[in-house]
Design a binder for these strands. Structure first.
Length: 301
DNA sequence: AAAAGCCCCTGGACGC
DNA sequence: TGCGTCCAGGGGCTTT
C-alpha cells in the first residue's frame, strides 16, 4: 500500500503503540525479505525503547535508544497490523488460542507474517508482506543522513525545499517523460504511480510531456512548476486526510481502511469519462517505463 | 549522467 | 475445478 500518504498513515497508526515504548521481544521469522536482515536484528532491538518514529519518503525510521536507527520499507505489499495491549478478548477466540497468543483479527492470516514486535506495553506489531519487496535495516543513528538508501533521496513533496526554482532546475535538460521524472525518488521522494497520475491530471499536464519542458522559460520557473507543485501537495494532503488509499482490501495498521481510492480521478479508471468539469475526454490507460499510466488526452497537455 | 530493462515475489482476476 | 496469463501501490542493479 505504500506511497507517501499510505506510509504516513501507517506511521501515525504505529506511533501511539511504539513511540516511547520498549521492544520486549522481537520475532524475526525468516532470514531475509528483499534483503537479508542485519546481523543480530532481534537482539539489538530487544529491551530498547523506541524514541521516535519518523517518515522519510516511503521509509519509516525509528530512532532506537542506544543510538541505532530502525529502517522499514513496505515495498509493494508490506503492511503492519497492531494487536492492542491485551485486555478483554472475545471468549470464543481466547478458548481456541494458545495461552498467551496474540490473536489476528484482521482476516489476513499469518502466512506472511515475517516480523513480530512484542512491545512492553503489551501491544503486538506484526509486519506482513506476501511479495517480500519490503525490507528492514538497522544502523547507527549517526549514519541516518549518509545511509546508502537515504542519502540520494530528493526533497519531501510536502516540505519547504520543494519549490518552483528547485523543480525547474532539476527538470532542465531532461528528456525523460514527466511521469518518469516525477517517479524518480532522487528528485521528489515519496511519490508513486497513483499520486503522480493523479497530480498530473489535476495539473492538466500530460505524463508523456518531456520533463525538460517544465524548466525555466525566460527566468519564469514558476510558470509551469508552481501549479504542478500545488497539485502534488493537494493530492497528497487530501489522501493523508483520507487515511491513504486501500487497494485490494488491504488494511492500515489500526485495521481501518483508507478511503482515498474513491477519490481517484484517473488511476485505474480507464474508459471512464474525464472528471474535469466541462471536459468530454475519456481516461486512457497506457504504459510508461513499464508502469501503467492513466490520463485524459483532451485536458492534459 | 541519464535513461531503459530486468528482476525480486505472491496472489487475485480473468479467460478457456 | 483447474490451469495459464497478465497485472499489481517499489526500487535496486545492470546495461546502454
Amino acid at each position: 500500500m505504500p506511497e507517501l500518504p499510505e506510509v504516513e498513515t501507517v506511521r501515525r497508526g504505529l506511533e501511539p503503540v511504539m513511540a516511547g515504548v520498549r521492544f520486549a521481544r522481537v520475532e524475526q521469522r525468516r532470514a531475509d525479505l528483499r534483503f537479508p536482515f542485519p546481523e543480530r536484528f532481534a537482539e539489538r532491538l530487544e529491551g530498547r525503547k523506541v524514541l521516535r518514529l519518523d517518515r522519510r519518503a516511503k521509509y519509516l525510521l525509528a530512532e532506537i535508544e542506544g543510538g541505532e536507527c530502525l529502517l522499514m520499507h513496505l515495498g509493494m505489499s508490506g503492511r503492519f497490523t497492531i494487536e492492542p495491549p491485551r485486555r478483554v478478548r472475545r471468549a470464543a477466540s481466547a478458548e481456541t488460542a494458545p495461552r498467551g497468543a496474540f490473536l489476528h483479527d484482521t482476516g489476513l492470516g499469518a502466512a506472511h507474517d515475517h516480523v513480530v514486535f512484542h512491545m512492553s506495553n503489551g501491544a503486538t506489531v506484526t509486519y506482513n508482506d506476501p511479495r517480500r519487496f519490503g525490507f528492514m535495516d538497522l544502523f547507527a543513528e549517526a549514519e541516518r543522513e549518509s545511509h546508502k538508501l537515504l542519502a540520494g533521496l530528493g526533497v519531501e513533496p510536502l516540505g519547504n525545499h520543494l519549490n518552483a526554482e528547485y523543480l525547474s532546475g532539476r527538470a532542465h535538460g531532461r528528456r525523460a517523460d514527466l511521469k518518469a521524472f516525477l517517479l524518480d525518488q532522487r528528485i521528489i521522494a515519496g511519490l508513486g504511480n497513483i499520486y503522480v497520475c493523479e497530480a498530473l491530471h489535476r495539473a492538466g499536464l500530460s505524463p508523456r510531456r518531456r520533463a525538460g519542458t517544465l524548466a525555466d522559460r525566460q527566468g519564469r520557473p514558476a510558470e509551469r512548476c508552481a501549479p504542478l507543485i500545488a497539485e502534488i501537495r493537494r493530492v497528497l494532503e487530501d489522501a493523508i486526510q483520507a487515511g491513504g488509499s486501500t487497494l485490494r482490501d488491504w488494511r492500515h495498521a489500526d485495521g481501518a481502511l483508507g478511503y482515498f481510492q474513491h477519490a481517484f480521478r484517473v488511476y485505474d479508471r480507464a474508459g471512464e469519462t474525464c472528471p474535469r468539469p466541462g471536459c468530454r475526454g475519456t481516461i486512457r490507460r497506457f504504459v510508461q517505463a513499464g508502469r501503467a499510466s492513466f490520463a485524459c488526452r483532451l485536458c492534459q497537455h
